[in-house]
């Protein structure tokens, strides 16, 4: 039976010949041509393939697509239509990306953490981001950007005086 799930806010039914065992990563990239989610290791070591499943950060390379049936999947493309999510804005303002390949995954891990911890400590960041490798070593700027995004979101929530 064809698999249906919510992808970036819209209902998505896969062609019936897509194997239920196929990892979500390859469904996104090769079947649906949503290439913002990246392949890094295929073994959930590096976090390049991170997406949200019902709001939690997961590694799509080790997630059979059958297991997302009926659930909500958000990819980097679904975070905002115009890179306006506070985390994306903070990433741009701190000039985080270098090669940029890992950054979709970094941003998805960071947004999932901030949804639960709006004002994370450095230790929170160390823990939440421990599954994401950046070979360009942008970690210091990622940390700054996460703090900046948290501050932006807090400022936006403040009632106007």
């Amino acid at each position: 039976m064809a698999i249906t799930f919510t992808l970036n806010g819209k209902s998505q039914t896969l062609p019936s010949d897509v194997s239920p065992e196929m990892p979500l990563l390859w469904v996104l990239r090769d079947v649906l041509n949503l290439t913002g989610t990246k392949f890094g290791c295929g073994m959930a070591f590096c976090g390049a393939c991170t997406v949200h499943l019902n709001g939690d950060a997961i590694r799509s390379c080790m997630t059979p697509v059958s297991s997302v049936a009926g659930k909500r999947v958000t990819t980097i493309e679904g975070l905002s239509p115009d890179a306006s999510h506070p985390v994306q804005r903070a990433w741009i303002e701190e000039d985080v990306p270098q090669c940029g390949y890992c950054q979709s995954g970094q941003i998805m891990s960071a947004t999932a953490m901030l949804a639960k911890k709006s004002n994370p400590t450095d230790a929170d960041i160390d823990e939440a981001m421990s599954g994401n490798i950046c070979r360009c070593g942008t970690y210091q700027r990622i940390r700054k950007a996460i703090h900046r995004a948290a501050a932006m979101s807090a400022a936006a929530k403040k009632p106007a005086a």
Partner: peptide, 27 residues
Amino acid sequence: TPRLDARAKSSGAAKFGIDSRVPGMLY
């Protein structure tokens, strides 16, 4: 000077080699 590619690399829009898609292609 901020990087000109920071936005595309923060939105998933940046196209790397692995993102190349050609009609009829095989992997």
